[in-house]
Design a protein around this nucleic acid. Structure first.
Lengths: 207, 207
DNA sequence: GCGCTTTTTGACCAATTGGTAAAGCCACGA
DNA sequence: TCGTGGCTTTACCAATTGGTCAAAAAGCGC
């Protein structure tokens, strides 16, 4: 049984763990933690239920592993925002990265959203430990840009909230958007719209 | 058993049905449909499980009833947007109404979000039948305003998406916001920020 | 091919799930 | 006060849940 100080995961372990995690991502993002079942993950992964429990300690272990992996990728676009770059360009690039991510990783976005909506029972520590410091740091960067007159005066915190919400919306509410408009034209339209939105918001008045 | 063409619901029926629906809103919005249990609703409502099933045909019946009720209140702010009013004022007022609603009815917002994230299995018909026509109508109104030069040229569909996402974010991601900033200052800050955001976006250039 | 470890499975379990049946309770009008 | 009908509970179920265990079946170095 793999535990404690493992040596080297075998080829089979690597393959099966990733099979399980991928299947679990499907199931958890679609039904939430409590709504997902090991049997669903079993079917989706092609592995028997006891076999899944050979690789993971339990349902919660799978979920936690997924959330841990997610946190890194999730923060990455914000990490990349460079304090020494051009403020408006940096922020617009951040918006674009978040938008791309919502498109490429919609399951991850929904998993994250579901977890937060349900009160983040398994994620609060991560938010406090990883997200909060990064958020504060980047807010300070943006505030400095504002103070230097390189951006219109806005509250950095709400700016970030609005970037998160507008971009993730295209992943989390994809079904609704699918009902309301042709999805094939939604993507480029969203790019242009959000660029326009945040440009107008952030462009300093003195120009 | 109350079904088919009912006469007049008794005082007790009215009270208990609303007790159940209120409790169910708590539970469903917190755990999603599959994650919620009748026992939880039973405890939260103070009624025994069989008693709950005396008033509703089953778990799904409760959920559907909740979603049906929600759809009306949910569309209301958009319905109120008046084609004959001042464009910018109307849209800013719409933003404010959605923001107020997210604050006053966070459970409903989370219930709705959870349902959509999970693919809207029980809501798709509603979206098609109720939301879509209203959405198209209001998009046409906004497009007309744009064509008349009363608003900056924007895509009405993405405008509405961004209004929905930014406002509902404060309800759906309340836990995350609670981690990142003092919640007591979040509300007025959000009001001002979003007014600024959408004013700058929508103000026509020729002024 | 041989022995040893890793992987996989089938059978099984206790707890929880949504739901049912029938009996009991209770108000209220005749 | 006595039914009568609406309301509530107790006892119970079959199905599903996450999880266990020992035995079987691969892998794999030699």
């Amino acid at each position: 049984m793999p535990d404690g100080a493992e040596k080297k995961p075998s080829r089979i372990q690597l393959r099966n763990r990733s099979l399980i995690l991928d299947a679990a991502l499907d199931v958890f993002s679609a039904y939430g933690y409590r709504g997902a079942t090991l049997d669903q993950i079993s079917v989706a992964s092609g592995l028997s239920k006891p076999n899944i429990l050979y690789y993971f300690a339990g349902k919660e272990d799978i979920h936690v592993t997924l959330l841990n992996q997610l946190m890194e990728t999730w923060l990455d676009p914000l990490v990349e925002m460079d304090a020494s770059g051009d403020p408006l360009e940096e922020l617009l690039a951040y918006v674009q990265r978040k938008l791309d991510m919502a498109r490429e990783l919609p399951r991850e976005s929904r998993l994250f959203a579901g977890e937060i909506i349900q009160g983040a029972p398994r994620m609060l520590p991560h938010l406090e430990a990883d997200l909060k410091p990064l958020f504060d740091e980047k807010c300070a960067v943006i505030q400095a840009w504002v103070d230097e007159g390189k951006l219109a005066p806005i509250d950095p915190r709400h700016l970030i909230f609005s970037i998160w919400s507008t971009t993730q919306h295209y992943a989390d509410f994809a079904v609704q958007i699918g009902v309301l408009m042709r999805t094939d034209v939604a993507a480029p339209g969203a790019d242009a719209y959000l660029r326009d939105l945040f440009t107008k918001l952030l462009m300093p008045a003195t120009r």
